[in-house]
Amino acid sequence: MLSVVALKAFTIWVGILVLAIANGALREAVLMPRLGIPAALVLSGLLLSALIIGVAYLSLPWLQIRRPMQFWAVGFGWLALTLVFEFAFGLWQGKSWPVLLEAYTFKGGNIWPVVLAVTLLAPYIAAQLRGWG
């Protein structure tokens, strides 16, 4: 049972990753030229946060989990996958550690740490929205 939930949670995270990449493309191509960098970063972060919660809300019945510890486990899994992906992809691109870590500050409108917190909390928030908590 645990491996089935883990596989489903991983599949959902891949969907979140696709949405995050599309969100980044939208930010770069549309939001930044029209709104400027700080506003685009904030709007993009809020949009991605809403998408993550929406995906969590829609996917909870498929995951077939109901206990708070399960919501937290999925959230921690999504957060860990996101961090591993972000750092691995950044290092693969040749970015330095200081450049990678700058994304984890609130400088210039960046709210990436908020998105990470939402990623962790999304299954729990979704369960609360469904009245399962």
Rank of each mutant, 00 (worst) to 15 (best):
M1P: 15
M1Y: 13
L2G: 12
L2I: 03
V5G: 01
V5D: 03
V5R: 04
V5S: 02
A6H: 12
A6E: 15
K8P: 00
K8F: 13
F10S: 14
T11L: 08
W13P: 03
W13Q: 05
V14T: 11
V14E: 04
V14Q: 06
G15E: 08
G15H: 10
L17F: 10
L19V: 11
A20V: 01
A20Q: 07
N23K: 07
G24M: 06
G24W: 13
A25D: 10
A25P: 06
E28S: 12
E28W: 07
E28M: 05
A29F: 07
V30L: 08
M32I: 15
M32C: 06
P33L: 06
P33E: 07
L35G: 02
L35T: 03
G36T: 03
P38K: 00
P38G: 02
A39G: 01
A40P: 00
L41M: 13
L41Q: 09
V42H: 10
L43S: 10
L43Y: 13
L43R: 05
L43I: 11
S44H: 10
S44G: 12
G45F: 02
G45L: 04
G45M: 03
L47R: 14
L47Y: 15
L47V: 15
L48D: 06
S49Y: 09
S49A: 15
S49N: 09
A50M: 13
A50E: 12
A50N: 09
L51D: 11
L51H: 09
L51Q: 14
I52P: 01
I52Q: 02
I52W: 01
I53E: 14
G54V: 05
A56L: 02
Y57A: 02
L58H: 12
L58Y: 15
S59V: 00
S59R: 02
S59T: 10
S59M: 11
L60M: 08
W62D: 01
L63Q: 05
I65M: 02
R66K: 07
P68Y: 15
P68N: 09
P68R: 14
P68L: 14
M69P: 00
Q70R: 00
W72I: 02
A73T: 09
V74C: 01
G75K: 06
G75Q: 04
G77D: 12
L79P: 04
A80R: 06
L81C: 12
T82N: 05
T82R: 00
T82G: 06
L83R: 11
F85M: 09
F87T: 07
F87Q: 04
L91G: 15
L91H: 13
G94M: 09
G94H: 12
S96Q: 14
V99F: 15
V99E: 14
L100F: 14
L101N: 12
L101D: 13
E102L: 13
A103M: 14
Y104S: 10
T105M: 15
T105S: 15
F106N: 08
F106C: 05
K107Y: 15
G108H: 13
G108K: 13
G109D: 06
G109N: 06
N110Q: 14
N110V: 04
I111Q: 10
W112K: 04
V114H: 13
V115D: 05
L116D: 05
L116S: 06
A117Q: 11
L120P: 01
L121H: 02
L121R: 02
L121I: 09
A122W: 02
P123S: 07
A127N: 02
A127V: 06
Q128C: 01
L129Y: 12
R130S: 03
G133T: 10
